[in-house]
């Protein structure tokens, strides 16, 4: 059960596809709210630091939390003890809020008060490392009870690993941080071309004289560059961008 062969559910595909269309800051909030509703989450929060040409002490933040909570968080200066930030920015693995050490009083206060403000009982935070050295965190929270959440969490950690990066790219676009033009390498174009002609990965590999793993790898790189949700979507995008021709 690995990424490219995993039946990806419609929600996941929709979320990524919608993220690719977002063009304004307002639409970022709309997307996060839509994602929260569609997944039955409580909240979503995105934060990025170290963007190029920005003061890194001035993070960009998009959250679905209430304004009251954001104000309260600032007033209480929770940023100093918030383990979500401390662990999230120091890790590349997803951070599970259930693993936090609540023995220290400020941390206990933070999570106690966050519940009163409806932040969510459960949460995971997905770290993103970006091309310009920037770092971002996508948090999703839920009010699910433990058994239910523990089941979903495993899937969420994998799906939101990818979604987090698409949301990050969406924010870079909205913040006018230049994304490089899509430039596919010759091997990636070859793989897409043959895929567009209906060849399976095995066949593409045979035609190009590479291992099937390598063929899948180049398709994955192309998928990423095209900001596509899967290989079919990548082919469609490559055709619409005239990177490969549709009819051959």
């Amino acid at each position: 059960m690995f990424f490219s062969d995993r039946p990806m559910d419609a929600l996941f595909l929709e979320t990524i596809e919608q993220a690719a269309q977002v063009g304004t800051k307002e639409e970022v909030y709309t997307l996060l709210q839509g994602m929260v509703a569609a997944y039955g989450l409580k909240n979503a929060a995105y934060m990025v630091v170290n963007l190029p040409h920005r003061n890194h002490l001035d993070p960009q933040i998009y959250v679905t939390y209430s304004m009251e909570w954001v104000d309260h968080y600032k007033k209480r200066n929770f940023v100093r003890c918030d383990p979500v930030l401390l662990q999230g920015f120091g890790s590349i693995l997803p951070v599970d809020w259930g693993d936090f050490d609540l023995s220290k009083r400020p941390v206990r206060s933070l999570f106690g008060e966050s519940r009163e403000f409806g932040v969510g009982r459960q949460g995971i935070t997905l770290p993103v490392r970006g091309r310009f050295g920037e770092q971002a965190l996508l948090t999703i929270t839920s009010d699910d009870a433990d058994p239910e959440w523990n089941r979903k969490k495993i899937l969420y950690m994998r799906d939101f690993q990818v979604i987090a990066y698409h949301i990050h790219r969406m924010v870079l676009r909205v913040e006018n941080i230049s994304e490089q033009q899509i430039h596919l390498a010759p091997r990636e174009i070859d793989c897409l071309k043959w895929t567009a002609m209906g060849k399976t990965v095995q066949e593409v590999a045979q035609i190009l004289g590479v291992g099937h793993r390598t063929a899948r790898f180049y398709l994955e790189l192309a998928r990423h560059k095209l900001d596509a949700v899967n290989i079919t979507h990548a082919v469609a995008k490559a055709v619409s961008l005239n990177i490969i021709s549709g009819g051959m």
Partner: peptide, 11 residues
Amino acid sequence: EPGDMVESATI
């Protein structure tokens, strides 16, 4: 290879 770059959230 020239022009190749490895960049993906799943790699």
